[in-house]
């Protein structure tokens, strides 16, 4: 299907952007950014009802929050490629006086960003609040969140999970990037989340879906299904299996590339695995 093919090509370009941005800044978080590239591309180019002529209040459109703010290169690339701001601005990532701060922020008024994130565990709470405001405003659009799996170690998430179920915040779709990695190692080694995240979230009163974060068709289908499940009294949680660093052969599946920049030769090797589909910035 051409639609899927186009989305895949866009995701490839987004991955090139991510690597070039992190390389240019000599810092940043390529691993999780690459791993979530298919999902966020699908979200902004297919799933969301959104308006790149950015309105902070997000009224009458879907609203997305990035809770794991360290994958900002991905967020910025997708926003730029969707028309929120010029693609050339990606080269200012993490530089002095840039609107593209190390972690997403609102102070510089970058279109597309509605809340600062980076200090982990706050996105689901903010999104639940935004979802409540949509109900009060009689706005039928949805609120989406992407969060990390290591981020589930932050206690505030579980406060938010409890709240959203209790208050029937059923216009909220949270996707967790289930890559099993965090800075210090695998999530199981660092602080085990338990074998069964699904059972935990179910016990908290959420609807659960599973998704293959590297299968574009599966992402589109799962998000469509999630949308049909909204409005039924329960928030929705999607466990998205991904590989950190996907698909770069020397990065994939390793926590080592969580938060370091590629060298010149690393970049060259990595870009060779990602044929340019749209023009580089």
């Amino acid at each position: 299907m051409t639609d899927i093919r186009t989305l895949e090509q866009t995701a490839t370009q987004v991955r090139r952007d991510i690597l070039r941005m992190v390389h240019g800044a000599k810092s940043g978080h390529p691993g999780g950014s690459l791993g979530c590239a298919d999902f966020l591309t699908a979200l902004y180019f297919k799933v969301l009802n959104h308006n790149p002529k950015f309105n902070m209040n997000g009224k009458n459109e879907d609203v997305f929050f990035l809770s794991n703010g360290h994958i900002s290169p991905l967020f910025y690339s997708v926003l730029a490629r969707s028309g929120y701001f010029p693609v050339e601005e990606l080269k200012t990532f993490r530089k002095l006086h840039s609107r593209l701060q190390g972690h997403p922020a609102t102070a510089e008024h970058l279109p597309g960003v509605r809340i600062a994130s980076g200090s982990l565990g706050q996105g689901v709470s903010v999104a639940a609040g935004a979802a409540l405001s949509k109900k009060l405003n009689d706005d039928k659009n949805l609120v989406y969140v992407l969060m990390g799996d290591g981020e589930l170690q932050e206690g505030q998430n579980w406060e938010a999970f409890m709240f959203a179920a209790h208050h029937k915040v059923d216009n909220l779709i949270v996707t967790v990037d289930y890559n099993g990695q965090q800075i210090d190692g695998s999530t199981m080694e660092v602080l085990g989340l338990g074998a069964d995240i699904e059972a935990k979230l179910k016990a908290f009163g959420w609807e659960i879906l599973h998704m293959d974060g590297h299968n574009m068709q599966n992402i589109i289908d799962t998000m469509a299904k999630a949308k049909t499940m909204t409005g039924n009294g329960k928030p929705i949680f999607i466990i998205m299996k991904t590989e950190m660093g996907q698909p770069i052969d020397f990065m994939v599946g390793s926590h080592k590339w969580h938060g370091i920049a590629p060298s010149d030769s690393d970049l060259e090797k990595a870009l060779a695995q990602l044929p340019s589909t749209l023009a580089d910035y």
Binding site: M56, N57, G58, K59, V63, R114, I115, G121, Q122, G123, V124, S125, V126, A127, A128, G129, A130, A131, L132, S133, K134, L136, N137, D139, G155, Q156, E159, A160, M162, F163, H166
Partner: peptide, 18 residues
Amino acid sequence: GIAEANMIGLAAGLAIGD
């Protein structure tokens, strides 16, 4: 409930929705 961290986040989200 007794969940102040969540309360602050919720408030920020509600403020986004005006």
